[in-house]
């Protein structure tokens, strides 16, 4: 029984990291239709920003979260403005362009700070462990779980309870009608992309104490995040949450029964089959128009 609970908790922990990384991607893909292959690099930038803030400015991880969000969001804004906004109506080409941008970011980081692994310290206040259902769990993992849920809540509020969110939803439904009501679609898109990038940066900063930081750390995350978004359904934030935890539990569980490689292969295969039969994702009620 203890082992079972331990598995559930491990799954929740994997799931919360997946959710952190996938949330930004879900916003960008769901609202703009852009397959952002540079997402992993935004995650990487966030992790490096945490390292820079810590090493050069002596800022703790928790104190630097807000500046990291702003810095990476600014990157996202620039990329949307000067690259992606030129690619209207060419969704497949956004894959290529964002991938090129990703290579550039990765390489620029490698040139500037080298490709050695970097380490970010756990916040001292969260470095002990606590009891969850009788299982000792590192406090930092509990913290990640709480933060990922909080960020989801904030994003949901932003989308559904603010003017910017309403404008974005109007543009998703019909861009030209929204524009004729005076909504500046370009500006809203740039803001959306910046927000998604900022979330990715936060995710990178938050996972940086758990994994080592390297220029190519983003590649693994972007694939996982995509699987979460595809499984959850393109325009469903709640679906993203559900699928992040389902995937977390699944990979945790299969890895326990088999090994990591088999777990990964089975999860990927399951997603391939899912795309074939339910391309709209598990959690969207929308029928094809």
């Amino acid at each position: 029984m203890d082992q079972f609970i331990e598995q559930i908790v491990t799954g929740l922990s994997i799931g919360s990291i997946l959710l952190l990384v996938a949330l930004g991607l879900s916003i960008i893909y769901g609202s703009m239709g852009i397959i952002n292959l540079a997402h992993g690099e935004f995650v990487m930038l966030g992790a490096y920003a945490a390292w820079v803030f810590h090493t050069y400015l002596g800022l703790g991880l928790l104190a630097s979260l807000v500046p990291i969000f702003l810095v990476v969001a600014a990157f996202g804004w620039v990329i949307e403005r000067y690259v992606l906004s030129l690619l209207n109506n060419r969704p497949l080409d956004t894959i290529l362009a964002t991938w090129g941008v990703g290579i550039m970011l990765q390489q620029a980081v490698r040139l500037m700070v080298g490709s050695e692994l970097r380490y970010v310290q756990l916040p001292p206040a969260l470095s002990n462990s606590m009891d969850v259902f009788g299982i000792p769990v590192s406090s930092y993992r509990v913290f990640l779980f709480v933060v990922s849920i909080a960020l989801f809540g904030a994003t949901w509020l932003l989308m559904n309870r603010t003017t910017v969110g309403m404008k974005l939803r109007a543009i998703i439904q019909d861009r030209s009608v929204a524009a004729s009501f005076g909504i500046n679609a370009k500006r809203v898109y740039a803001l959306t992309f910046a927000y998604g990038a900022g979330l990715a940066g936060l995710a990178g900063a938050l996972v940086s104490p758990l994994k080592s930081v390297s220029p190519d750390m983003g590649t693994g995350y972007v694939v996982d995040a995509f699987m979460v978004v595809v499984l959850g359904g393109v325009q469903s934030l709640a679906g993203t949450v559900a699928s992040a935890f389902i995937l977390g539990e699944l990979s945790g569980g299969i890895a326990f029964l088999q090994n990591d490689t088999v777990a990964k292969a089975i999860v990927l295969l399951a997603i391939v089959v899912l795309i074939r039969f339910r391309p709209e994702g598990l959690f969207t009620a929308r029928v094809r128009a």
Binding site: V83, L86, L87, D93, L96, G102, I103, M104, L111
Partner: peptide, 14 residues
């Protein structure tokens, strides 16, 4: 070169 390549690629796509 990899950096230049990435830039070249983005320009070609655009």
């Amino acid at each position: 070169w990899t950096l230049v390549m990435g830039a070249l690629f983005v320009l070609v796509v655009l």
